[in-house]
Design a protein around this nucleic acid. Sequence first.
DNA 1: ACTGAAAGTACCACGAG
DNA 2: CTCGTGGTACTTTCAGT
Lengths: 146, 146
Amino acid sequence: MDAVDREIVGHLMRDGRATFAEIGSGVGLSAPAVKRRVDRMRASGHITGFTALIDPAALGWTTEAYVEIYYDGNVSATELKRSLEPIPQVVGAWTVAGNPDAIVHVMATNMAEIEQVVERMREHARVERTRSAIVMSRLFERPRSR
Amino acid sequence: MDAVDREIVGHLMRDGRATFAEIGSGVGLSAPAVKRRVDRMRASGHITGFTALIDPAALGWTTEAYVEIYYDGNVSATELKRSLEPIPQVVGAWTVAGNPDAIVHVMATNMAEIEQVVERMREHARVERTRSAIVMSRLFERPRSR
DNA sequence: ACTGAAAGTACCACGAG
DNA sequence: CTCGTGGTACTTTCAGT
């Protein structure tokens, strides 16, 4: 990943459907040259894919929360992943060093659904307690990775 | 947004560079019909854009944190957005109902940079205190909206 | 540089209101 | 009759080698 690759990546983050020719004219390369670089970055895992950015409200996703989880003792990251990933409303999860042990991002259609998800997480394993923050307004969110 | 639109959106979330013909064969429409629907959803704001999914490590983004902000009194969402959005390391920000007043997602190249960002947020306005959680491992994150 | 495929556009057909 | 939506045909541009 040199400077040109980073320029290409920046362009693709701003417009994931940009044509290779368009990107090329921005970075001073021909379309095939850009394609070869993009292919290489996909193969190497630097680019993991392309996606559409959707207004969550359009999918009925109107309620959103961040939930901290406090565990009783140590729980492995892989076990956590295995228990959280099957829950479709959990759109992201991280283990952290700080007060809580993990942070979970939940998106749902309403508050009752959030509560169900939180209870489902609590049932499982060695959860000592949870602490939820309901999102009032999404100020902004920049496109990134996955 | 009818059922067909949701199918198209699902397809585009899985592959943001899928061709209209390919999507059409999945949902039983011709390529131009799909294009018209996509154009309409972009115009209406249901689809806000397309982006590449990048491995953060490939950009040097190896350190990540969630920072809670506690304010002294009320601060408007618009003021918060105005103060946080210019900081490039802040990749997402939400006002919440819960213990903190806001949650901020920070990505940086190292811990020192995280600290700088937190201090910069503290300087501003009526921040009473902050509480940070450093991400140890990203368990997973599903592609969504912005 | 070249070939096949996709994007994009124009125009017509059909059904619901 | 009109509006919305889909299809086909065609041109231009892009992808892929």
